[in-house]
């Protein structure tokens, strides 16, 4: 479904060029749930933006559904770290935004999309909140609305950029369970960026570990724990713990030359 071949990304920083990503080869199968994990500034978000067509790669090729990515695609949706809701729009009309912007989408009538929006809001427990404004909702509820918005056009691919990282632990647990449920129902391909090891393990079929500066693929770890899994109580605690420990070691590993635990991308 998603194919990256020798992808690299170089930014022009103030102090010369900055290599954000280098030699990324990744193949995500249809219906697969892949999490990208790494320290801050390792290029995870950049990688996601390359797949989304928000950013053209400096080198290499990005393909989605067998076609080279030239810009944002209708069948790919993006979910951000923050809810990114338009504050003057009601919950329902925020969910309907993608449909409204892409009027040519015509595979369904507006009424059908509206029904779908109600259905999705019910799925995440927001029935009865359709006419509320975003500022009347809690952070978790806002992020649920954002999730519904990214699902409204039944995307083939969902790209999620640390969508739960700003939420409290309990809400985060709930949402990760909801996401798995939705995933199993819709068989969407998901690429999910996170810096939480636990989240990466619980959600993913495969975890891709990135090393920072420049972002390289350190390792790809398969997760064979049966679903549904939970961040909270877990029937497979030992497996999760074992894999988490391994990921932790991979992330903490110092490479030969100085890898400084700083947050920004090192310029060279």
């Amino acid at each position: 479904m998603i194919r990256l071949d020798g992808v690299g990304q170089v930014f022009d920083g103030r102090e010369g060029q900055v290599t954000a990503l280098e030699k990324i080869d990744l193949h995500v199968r249809g219906g697969e749930f892949v999490t990208l994990i790494g320290r801050s500034g390792c290029g995870k978000s950049t990688l996601l933006r390359l797949i989304a067509g928000l950013l053209p790669p400096t080198s290499g090729a990005v393909q989605v559904a067998g076609e080279p990515v030239t810009g944002p695609r209708r069948d790919v949706s993006f979910m951000f770290q923050r809810p990114a809701l338009l504050p003057w729009r009601s919950v329902l009309s925020n969910v309907m935004l993608p449909v409204e912007i892409d009027k040519g989408a015509g595979d369904r009538s507006k009424a059908a999309y509206r029904d779908r929006a109600h259905q999705l809001l019910e799925l995440v427990g927001l029935q009865g909140f359709e006419r509320r404004l975003p500022h009347e909702l809690s952070g978790g509820m806002q992020q649920r609305v954002s999730l519904c918005r990214s699902l409204i056009r039944d995307p083939q691919v969902m790209l999620m950029d640390e969508p739960f990282s700003a939420l409290d632990a309990l809400t985060r647990t709930e949402l990760s369970e909801e996401l798995q449920r939705i995933k199993m129902e819709l068989s969407t391909t998901i690429v999910f960026v996170t810096h939480s090891i636990e989240e990466a393990v619980v959600l993913a079929d495969r975890v891709v570990v990135l090393t920072p500066r420049p972002g390289r693929m350190r390792e790809v770890v398969d997760i064979d724990i049966p679903r549904p899994r939970s961040l909270g109580q877990n029937a497979h605690l030992t497996e999760v713990a074992a894999i988490s420990g391994r990921l932790h070691a991979l992330l903490a590993e110092k490479e030969s030359d100085e890898v400084r635990p700083v947050d920004e991308v090192r310029s060279r």
Binding site: A52, L54, G71, P72, R74, S77, F78, F80, Q81, R82, A84, L86, L97, P98, I101, D102
Partner: peptide
């Protein structure tokens, strides 16, 4: 993030 949202929606 809102600008990026609009971009991602084409």
């Amino acid at each position: 993030e809102l600008v990026e949202l609009m971009r991602s929606l084409n």
